[in-house]
Design a protein around this nucleic acid. Structure first.
Lengths: 119, 119
DNA sequence: CAGCATCCGAACCGATACTG
DNA sequence: CAGTATCGGTTCGGATGCTG
């Protein structure tokens, strides 16, 4: 979805909204990112388990191909939702964790996911 | 995503979670549905505007092709999130509205979208 | 007005293989 | 252990055209 493209959702057209009217149309950026496979689970797992290693994520999420997880992690980093922390050790160790933004997301996501799970 | 496929997310594996541990892995069904294009805006618009006609939705969402909206509406109906109400009039009138489940979803969605919008 | 059928290009996912 | 590169299959979205 391209940015700044007026969708008419916010302008008062035929749809009469006298109450609160927030625009949810250009839901790009974060929403797009978290709509992809494993993105939500990643955020959730990091939220409940804290810093987690690459391999742990692979196992826990039941990820099918390593490259997919890699892509998703990079996207989440680009959005500033997660952070990568690498340690100079042998064998190499890398941990992923939520940024403050990611934590805020997780907080607002939780009620939704809890409900979606049982429904 | 196929159902009932154990992802290992819920079993206590290498990931140590002593705190609350809810499983968010099999986020199928509703999450899948609302992850598709226009689904979220549809729910939001119906939430703030109440019953809305097909054409109004097309305008408001800036939908590109009519068939896409049609598909999305059917999916949301299958999930029991929205409801279709048709009137025997000429010209024909059809309105879509949230079911109780849809309203609950909208409630839980709102804080997320409000935050995502400004971020 | 409301909505489906179809066709085509784009995006996404999964598997395999290969590096630091 | 922690990734990237590549490629084929599948799914999704956009455009057009046609019905009740």
């Amino acid at each position: 979805m391209s940015e700044g493209e007026s969708c008419g959702c916010c302008s008062s057209s035929t749809v009469t909204s006298d109450t609160d009217h927030t625009c949810y149309c250009p839901v790009d950026g974060i929403i797009d990112t978290i709509s992809k496979k494993h993105a939500l689970p990643i955020v959730s797992v990091l939220g409940s388990n804290g810093p987690t290693r690459y391999n742990e994520l692979e196992e826990v999420l039941g990820v099918t191909s390593s490259s997919l997880l890699s892509t998703r992690l990079n996207e989440l980093m680009s959005e500033g939702l997660i952070e990568r922390q690498s340690f100079d050790e042998i064998p190499p160790r890398v941990e992923y964790l939520l940024t403050p933004d990611g934590e805020e997301l997780e907080r607002r996501l939780k009620p939704l996911l809890e409900w979606a799970d049982e429904a």
